[in-house]
């Protein structure tokens, strides 16, 4: 193991270093993914570029239409952020099941996204929220839909020299709620076997005005279940509607069998968790906790 660690003091310097080192360089935020991958010799970068001194990437800010979550915001910061406790509760529920407290206190949202694991938990509610990834690089700034940023396991649309600056999410309309459910082999300190995030908006007649479902660990990247969403819009979220959504989601996903679970079991979990997550959203909207 031999690498140099660089500590740029500005985003511009971080980008310049990344461009200079190319494939031999990696950004490091909390290091909870990267250091383990280096120790296991899965990655052998010659240069690490420390992002922790870049205050511009820290913190969670309100924007005119929602929130900008800095790439360096920790899972703990998301979990504890007061404005996320109501309609955006699903985001909090995902952040609070990433590893244990020690991991959450240092691991970042930007790292969770950039690492591009198909089982990354916080990615899933962000995808359900139509999050947009803001990138800055040698050629300036650009914004991409999270779904377009994630290309495959460990693969993203990040270009040479680019870093994630923040993640944008829009404020939800009235009568909206979110929920996140994770199935692992044990309750805590566990990688998702399957995870599901739901976002629902009801109209005044109690019909689904908008519905969004995102699934984790059942494909090459976290994915939206578009057919399942369509099965809900315009309908009252009764048992039949939820069953249709569950079946469409299970049909849409593309799980693999691995040491954690079989593909069949993963599909069954999707079918069970989708209606459960939607029911939680309905309850939250009815209780007005949104």
């Amino acid at each position: 193991m031999s690498f140099q660690v660089h500590h740029p003091q500005s985003v511009a310097d971080a980008i310049a270093l990344s461009q200079q080192f190319g494939d031999a360089g990696r950004f490091i935020a909390g290091g909870t993914d990267l250091v383990i991958q280096i120790n296991r010799k899965r990655q052998t970068p010659a240069h690490l570029i420390d992002l922790n001194r870049l205050d511009e990437l820290a913190g969670i800010a309100q924007t005119p239409d929602g929130f900008a979550i800095g790439a360096l915001a920790t899972h703990k910061a998301v979990e504890r952020h007061p404005p996320f406790q109501d309609a955006l509760r699903g985001l909090v529920e995902a952040a609070r099941v990433v590893g244990g407290h020690q991991v959450r206190n240092i691991a970042t949202v930007g790292g969770n996204i950039a690492n591009a694991s198909p089982a990354a938990d916080v990615v899933v509610p962000l995808l359900a929220l139509d999050a947009r990834v803001s990138l800055v690089g040698p050629r300036g700034a650009r914004t991409l839909a999270l779904g377009d940023f994630l290309l495959g396991p460990g693969r993203t649309a990040r270009e040479a020299g680019e870093l994630i600056d923040c993640i944008h999410i829009a404020r939800l309309p009235q009568r909206s709620a979110t929920a996140f459910l994770k199935a692992g082999r044990r309750k805590a300190m566990e990688i998702s076997v399957v995870c599901v995030a739901a976002r629902l908006t009801l109209d005044d007649e109690g019909r689904c005005a908008a519905a969004s479902l995102a699934l984790g660990a059942v494909g090459a990247t976290a994915m939206r279940a578009g057919e399942a969403e369509k099965a809900l819009v315009g309908r009252v979220p009764d048992d039949a509607a939820l069953r249709d959504a569950a079946q469409a989601a299970a049909a849409a996903c593309n799980p693999i069998s691995d040491v954690r679970a079989s593909a069949r079991y993963r599909r069954l979990l999707v079918e069970a968790l989708v209606p459960r997550a939607l029911r939680i959203c309905v309850t939250r909207i009815r209780e007005g906790r949104t």
Binding site: G31, T32, I36, Q102
Partner: peptide, 22 residues
Amino acid sequence: EAECGVCTVLLDGKAVNSCILL
């Protein structure tokens, strides 16, 4: 590998795993 917690220290008051912290 940040799984067991015996290396836990406080960094700015918050518990972290010192075994994977550069």
